[in-house]
Amino acid sequence: MTPHIPEPDTDPRFEQVLNQRLAELPLETPSHRLRANVLALAEQSTGEVHRWWWPFGPLWRPAFVLACSALLGLGLGTTWSQTPPAQEFIGSETITLIFGPMEEAP
């Protein structure tokens, strides 16, 4: 079968209508899933930033634990502060600190 080959249409009105119809073709509406997945790209990234800078996150966690320990120590020290038994070290105490308690032979 010989295909029908029409003559090219050069009617400017047809051209104009064709342009208009093409420009009027509606855009596609993305599904909720697609839109959510695309927007989630930014949310995931923001989440990652928050995870890193959040005080309880991996970066700050050791610093946070250290700061808490220091505050706890300060608090305890203030609450139960005791005066030392002597204002000055004496020689025997220094020797005991260095060599341990000396036991006298029976």
Binding site: L27, E28, T29, P30, L34, R35
Partner: peptide
């Protein structure tokens, strides 16, 4: 995304 999604999908 709001500006470009529809065109890309089309």
């Amino acid at each position: 995304a709001d500006r470009e999604l529809s065109g890309v999908l089309l």
